[in-house]
């Protein structure tokens, strides 16, 4: 096994399981649609709330996708093979997360113009929304993957991962929505984006090691 052959196999599996990614995106759209339907569909309410709605829906959809990341590998024993492969487990996990991120977030970004129209998000906010999604979502993946690895041996672990990981997502949601609101109000927002970037970088450094510990403890 080499790092590149591992990455190729990860992409192949993601391609064969494209229905799962598609489901995550549908879930995302449905959650977004709940807000205009359930609360208020007037632009007066939606325009200022759009950033928060998109981010909350994105967080849920991403956590659903991340939660099952190791399930199949755990069942068929390939997770065990990663541990004994003689390659660096944190690096393998990093590659896996990057592959997963590309598969989930890129389609999400493609749908954003449509959704921001539906939520009456002003132009000024849209650019910043895309930027926050690009630099904020990596930290969601890196934090979530720790929870996924910890609960991989539990049959019904989805709810537990939600309970465990969602509190950690709060800062990302707060920084992102504040940045978008600041942009809508014409205020400077680069400091908030820098915070998001810092969180993503920090989780990128810490999470693979924590996840590797969790994976090793889970496969035994």
């Amino acid at each position: 096994m080499t790092y590149s052959s591992f990455l190729v196999s990860e992409f192949l599996v993601l391609w064969r399981r494209k229905q799962d990614v598609f489901n995550a995106l549908l879930f995302f759209i449905i959650v977004v649609a709940l807000f205009p339907i359930g609360i208020n569909s007037s632009p007066d309410f939606l325009a200022p709330a759009a950033a928060g709605i998109v981010w909350c829906a994105a967080v849920l959809a991403i956590l659903m996708a991340v939660e099952s990341m190791f399930k199949e590998d755990y069942r068929d024993g390939s997770l065990e093979q990663l541990v004994v492969s003689g390659l660096s487990l944190p690096l393998l996990i990093l590659l896996k997360v990057v592959a997963q991120w590309l598969a989930v977030v890129l389609p999400l970004l493609v749908m954003m113009p449509l959704l921001s129209e539906m939520l009456y998000l002003p132009r000024s906010g849209f650019r910043v929304l895309i930027m926050t999604l690009l630099i904020g979502t990596p930290s969601l993946f890196f934090i979530g993957v720790i929870g996924a690895a910890l609960t991989v041996s539990i049959k019904q672990g989805a709810m537990l991962v939600m309970l465990l990981i969602l509190p950690f997502y709060l800062p990302v949601i707060i920084f992102s929505t504040l940045a978008i609101k600041a942009a809508q109000a014409g205020l400077p927002y680069s400091g908030l984006l820098a915070m998001l970037l810092a969180m993503s970088l920090m989780s990128l450094v810490i999470s693979p090691f924590m996840t590797a510990i969790a994976v090793k403890a889970s496969v035994n």
Binding site: S9, L12, V13, R16, R17, E72, D73, R75, D76, G77, S78, E80, Q81, V84
Partner: peptide, 13 residues
Amino acid sequence: IYLGHSIGVKSLL
């Protein structure tokens, strides 16, 4: 090479 009870073959590939 280690081959365990779960054989480490991905069913989708």
